[in-house]
Simulated scan of single mutants.
Amino acid sequence: MTGNITTATDFRNTVLNGDSVQLMRALPRNSVDFILTDPPYLVNYQGRDGRKVRNDDNARWLRPAFNQMHRVLKWDGFAVSFYGWNRIDLFAEAWKAAGFRMVGHIVFRKSYSSSSRFLRYEHESAYLLAKGNVTPPAKPIPDVIDMPYSGNKLHPTQKPVAALLPLVEAFCPVGGLVLDPFAGSGSSLVAAQHLGRDWLGMELDPDHAATATRRLAWHGARRAAA
């Protein structure tokens, strides 16, 4: 889906193709219950197959994007953001400037090495961010989560849904809305859909946005038929 958001219902259970900063500006303030996102790591990533990630070669979008995420997230809400470990200074500055507090750190343990140089890189990382005086979840989840290999068939940095399910369940209330402004192939949205939450994805690349849309439709049809 492309175009402007015109009503409160336009942004539920859809994938929007476009610049997420501009798209979020059209969202009402304090309208999202939980943000789960895997933005570009600012490392000019290129996979073994040559695929790249849009806007991974610059940080111009970083502060504006997190400013908008903070604006649309409800007070006392949580966000989980993956980040590039060697660009943590830029990410942390953007989170704090937007008004987020860093209240937890999550390690996603891989069963394989994504690269090897000084060390074998066998994990991904994310920060748990808070807006306002948040209430801890009733059942806190571990800060180390296993991350099975997704195969990266749908996106060069595709995250497995299984690793994202605990985050949605812990930090998004039942009936709440999950936002991913860097939706990629839609793994975070599939996790939200699987758990009965509403979801909204934003993706700059039209091919990935179309992939995510098809994927959500397929999973939604399977869930409805179950």
Rank of each mutant, 00 (worst) to 15 (best):
H70Y: 15
A59V: 10
A209K: 07
L167K: 04
A92V: 09
P156F: 05
T135D: 03
F78M: 12
C172D: 03
N58A: 13
H105I: 03
L36P: 03
P181D: 02
L23F: 14
W75Q: 09
A163L: 02
G50V: 09
R215G: 06
A98K: 06
L36S: 05
M202Q: 09
G84D: 09
D38L: 03
G84R: 02
S125D: 12
H194I: 12
F66D: 05
E169H: 01
A92N: 13
H155M: 04
F171C: 05
F91D: 14
D19C: 06
R109I: 05
F118T: 14
G176E: 04
L90F: 11
A212N: 00
G104A: 09
S114M: 10
Q22I: 08
Y83H: 15
F82T: 07
R87S: 12
R101E: 15
H70Q: 15
K131C: 02
K96H: 13
E203Y: 02
G132Q: 03
A212W: 02
Y45T: 04
L73P: 11
A224G: 11
F171I: 00
P181S: 00
Q22K: 13
T7N: 08
M147E: 09
A183S: 11
S185M: 04
D19E: 15
N30Y: 07
T6S: 07
A26H: 09
E203H: 00
R101W: 08
P137D: 11
I141S: 08
N86G: 11
V174F: 10
I88V: 15
A138S: 13
F82L: 11
W199M: 02
H123T: 00
K74W: 06
F34H: 08
A59E: 14
F66K: 12
G175K: 03
G84P: 12
V178G: 05
N86K: 07
S116L: 09
V53Q: 03
P166R: 15
T7K: 04
R215P: 13
D205P: 14
L36K: 00
E124V: 08
A210E: 07
V174C: 00
C172E: 01
R223E: 10
G47D: 01
R214L: 13
T37D: 03
N17F: 01
Y112C: 00
I5T: 07
S187R: 09
F118Y: 15
D49L: 05
A192Q: 00
L128R: 00
L62C: 06
V174T: 12
G47V: 00
K153H: 14
L177S: 01
F11K: 09
R215N: 14
L128S: 05
E122W: 01
T14F: 14
A163H: 13
G175Q: 02
K96I: 10
E124W: 07
F100R: 01
D38R: 07
D33L: 01
L42W: 10
R120W: 05
G151S: 02
M1W: 09
R223V: 00
L204I: 10
L36V: 04
T157H: 03
G201R: 01
P206W: 12
R87H: 10
G184E: 00
